[in-house]
Design a binder for these strands. Sequence first.
DNA 1: TGCCTCAATATGAGCGCTCACATGAGAGTA
DNA 2: TACTCTCATGTGAGCGCTCATATTGAGGCA
Lengths: 338, 338
Amino acid sequence: MPKKANIYDVAKLAGVSHQTVSRVLNNHSSLKPATREKVEMAIAELSYRPNQAARQLVTSKSRMIGVLIAESELFGPSSMLNAMQDVARKEGYSVISISVVTKSRDSWREGIEQLRNLDVDGVITIALHKDIVKEIERYLLGITIVLIGSEPSQKFNVVNMDNLMGAILATQHLIDLGHTEIVHVAGPENAYEAQMRRAGYEQTMKSADLVPKVFAGTWSIESGYLAGKEIAGLKKLPTAIFTANDHSAIGLIKVLHEQGISVPEQISIVGYDNIPESNFVIPSLTTIKPNFDALGNAAIEKMIMQLRQGNSKEAVMLKPELVIRNSTVAAQSGKRKK
Amino acid sequence: MPKKANIYDVAKLAGVSHQTVSRVLNNHSSLKPATREKVEMAIAELSYRPNQAARQLVTSKSRMIGVLIAESELFGPSSMLNAMQDVARKEGYSVISISVVTKSRDSWREGIEQLRNLDVDGVITIALHKDIVKEIERYLLGITIVLIGSEPSQKFNVVNMDNLMGAILATQHLIDLGHTEIVHVAGPENAYEAQMRRAGYEQTMKSADLVPKVFAGTWSIESGYLAGKEIAGLKKLPTAIFTANDHSAIGLIKVLHEQGISVPEQISIVGYDNIPESNFVIPSLTTIKPNFDALGNAAIEKMIMQLRQGNSKEAVMLKPELVIRNSTVAAQSGKRKK
DNA sequence: TGCCTCAATATGAGCGCTCACATGAGAGTA
DNA sequence: TACTCTCATGTGAGCGCTCATATTGAGGCA
C-alpha cells in the first residue's frame, strides 16, 4: 500500500505552497483560476484526500452530527434518519446515530458520553423526553441541539409534526362518520408526541360534546393488544377507536379478531403513522400520514444552518394528512367497504 | 465556556510529564500505582478527555467502524445494528451506519466515499451483494471487512445465519404436515440470503420427490401481495406457501384474504424472520426465527478482534429455529388451530 | 566503592492540517 | 520615478496527542 499523499505532496507536484493547496480545498476567494486548476490536477493525480483528523485537530470541528433516537427500530425514526443521512452527506457532514432506551438512564448516559468522545458539532434528538434533553445540555456544554418530536421551547430549535392536528383529523373523521362512542389508546405518557395526540383526541371529543375515554399504551403492538383486550371486556363496546400509532392498531385488530369483534363493522379503527404494513393489515388501516422525510430534512437543514451561521430559532411544524382506508366505516352501518 | 484541558494541563497538575499521562490513558505497564493514581485524580479534577482527533492524527486509527446496510428500515438489519452499537461502545469503538439503496450504484459510491472520508478502521456490510463488496475493496484499499449475509469467501470474514437450514426447516415443516403442493415466494435474485432460502426450499422439495415452484419477490410487502395475486390466479391452488420473509407473507395473506382464500384452511403459510408483527397478523404467522442480535454481536466482535490482532478468518454460521403459529395446518384439514 | 542493570519517567519530534501573518508583483496615483 | 495599495501566494507556528529515544535513580554485585 503506497503511503497516502498529504498536502505537501500535492503542493510539490503542483509547484505551489501547501497553503495554496489548503485554499483550494477550502474554496477560498483570491485564487487565480490557473493555480486552482493546477492544484486540482495534482489532487486528482495523487488521489489525495484531506485528513479529517488533522483538520479537526486544528479547527475543532468534526463535521459530525449525532442523532439520539429512542426506539430506533420504529418506522418513523428510521425513515427520518435516512432522510438526514442524505442531506448531511450532500453538505459534507456525517451523521452518527445512537439508539437509546428511553427507560434506561444508563443508556442515555452512554449515548451522550459517546457523542462527547466523538466531539460531534451538534445533536439532533428524536422523540426524547425533557429529562434526556437536559442531560445532553449538561454534559455537552454549548453544543447545538435540534429537537424532533419534543416539547417546544424557547431555548432549543424544535422541529415537529403537528400531532395535535393529526389527532384532530383522526378523531373528527370518526365523528363525521357518526360515531359517538370513541375511545383512544394512548402512547407512553412521557412521550410528547403521545401527549399531543391524546390532547387532540380529547379536545375534539369535547368540542363535539362527547366523552373522551383513554386507555394506556406504549406504542408497541403488545400494548395495543392488551388495551384491546380491556376494551373488548367492556360492558358496552365503543364503536370506534383511535390509537396513538399503527403498531398499537395492529395489536388491537388482532385481539378484537380473537374476541370475535369485527373491524370495521362493529368497531372502526384509526391508526397513526402510515407504516408500510398499515395498508396490508386486514382490514387495511385508516391512519394519519406524517411526512417523515420532510421532518428529517427540516431538522438536519436547521442544524447545518445553525452550525454555519448561528441562525434563527423559529420552530418548524409540518402538517400530517388523513389516509382513509377500510378500517373505518359509518356508525351503525353493517356494510363492508371494499 | 472554560477552555478544555489537554494532556499537558493534566501533567502539570499531577506533577508528571505528559508522556506519563499518556501512559495512564493507554494502560501501559510499568507505571507505579501511586503515579497512576495521581494522574487519575488530575484527570477527574479537570474532567479531561483525550482529544480523539489528535489521537487519530498520530495513530491513524479512527476507532470507527462503518456499517453499510441495504434497506436499513427492515427489522433484521436494524436489530443487528443496535446489537453492534452496544458491543462497539463497550469496546471503545463507534459505529457509523450508512444505508445504501441496492439498486443505485451512485448510492453505494457515496456511502463508500463517506466511509473513506471518515477514515473508518473497518467496514461491516449487511446483506450487500458481491458487486458492492468489490467496490468497497477497490476504494477502501486494505481495509478490514466483515460481511453479514453474503456469500462465503476465502478472502473475507463472513458471518451468516444458516439460511439454507432455515428454509429446510420451513419446507420440511410443511411437508411433515402432509402438504405436497408447496410453492415459494422468493426474495431478490441477487441477494445471497434469498438465494439460500430458495435453495433450501428447492432441495427439500426434491428430497421429498415434490416439484418446487418459485414466484419472484423482493422482500417487500407489495411483492408478496403481487406474488399472491399470481398464485391466487392459478388453475390449481397450492396448499402451502413458504415466503422468503415475513413481509412478503403479510402481503400474501392480504391478497389471499381479498380473493376469499382462507389461511390456513386452504393455504398454509410460513414466513421468515420473525418480525414483531408476525405474531399479530391474522392468522399469526409460522416463521423462521434468526437470532439477529447474535449475528450483530458476532460480526462486531470478529471485526474488533481482527482490528486488534489480525486474527482468524473462520466463518461464523448461526442456526435459526422454527416458530410454529397459526398460519400452518395439516393438509386437507379444515379445522382451525387456535 | 564503583560499575552495571533495569524499572520508571521525561524529552523532543512529528502526524497533516489551518491560522495569522509575511512577502512579492503589478496596477494606480502623484 | 517613487509611493502606496491590492491581489495572489508563501512561511512558520501550533492544534493535542503518541512514538522513539533519552535520562534518572535505586538496587545488585564484585
